[in-house]
């Protein structure tokens, strides 16, 4: 069993897991921590196996939970996750043109990652930012209200940091 998780960033992963008691109710906290530590912002097969092993759960139980919750990803994502809200309030106040502007500016469709690995665009149910609709979050930072014309300047702030 040990050998199977011996690949990418294993020592770091062990450092993370040791903080969590080996109980099933720790599954979501463990998955959040592993995903946060993964440079590609997702849960790799090795992450899943490590979580299962640490919590003494069948791998299927871990996979089951991961696929249920929208914040966990099984595919690599960009450095920044853009979560754009399409709740009824945001929809009413212009989420659709905002999503369109984001797709054009990023050159990708919702659910995809830019080729440079900088952004992933996700369309989500409701962010609880209805007083600032239409709204989005980039990583943990909320923004709104936004019009399609605001998108370029907003993304530029994140692009500049990289250069």
């Amino acid at each position: 069993m040990e050998g199977r998780i011996a690949m990418e960033h294993r020592p770091k992963r062990w450092e993370i897991l040791r903080r969590f008691p080996r109980r099933r109710d720790q599954l979501l906290p463990v998955l959040h921590a592993l995903q946060r530590a993964n440079p590609r912002n997702y849960l790799s097969p090795d992450d899943l196996r490590a979580a299962a092993e640490h919590l003494r759960l069948p791998l299927a139980a871990v996979y089951d939970a991961v696929t249920f919750y929208s914040m966990f990803s099984l595919v690599p994502r960009g450095r920044h996750i853009i979560r754009v809200c399409r709740s009824p309030t945001c929809h009413l106040l212009g989420a659709t043109p905002l999503i369109g502007a984001l797709e054009r500016e990023l050159g990708i469709r919702a659910g995809e990652t830019t080729p440079d690995g900088l952004f992933t665009l996700e369309v989500v149910s409701c962010l609880g930012l209805c007083d600032r609709a239409p709204a989005l979050m980039i990583d943990e930072e909320p923004f709104g209200p936004l019009s399609p014309g605001d998108v370029g300047a907003l993304l530029a702030r994140y692009r500049e940091v990289v250069r």
């Binding site: 979501l28 906290p29 998955l31 959040h32 249920f68 919750y69 929208s70 914040m71 966990f72 409701c126």
Partner: peptide
């Protein structure tokens, strides 16, 4: 504190 993971 326990964090959810995106499920209404």
């Amino acid at each position: 504190v326990r964090a959810g993971a995106g499920a209404y």
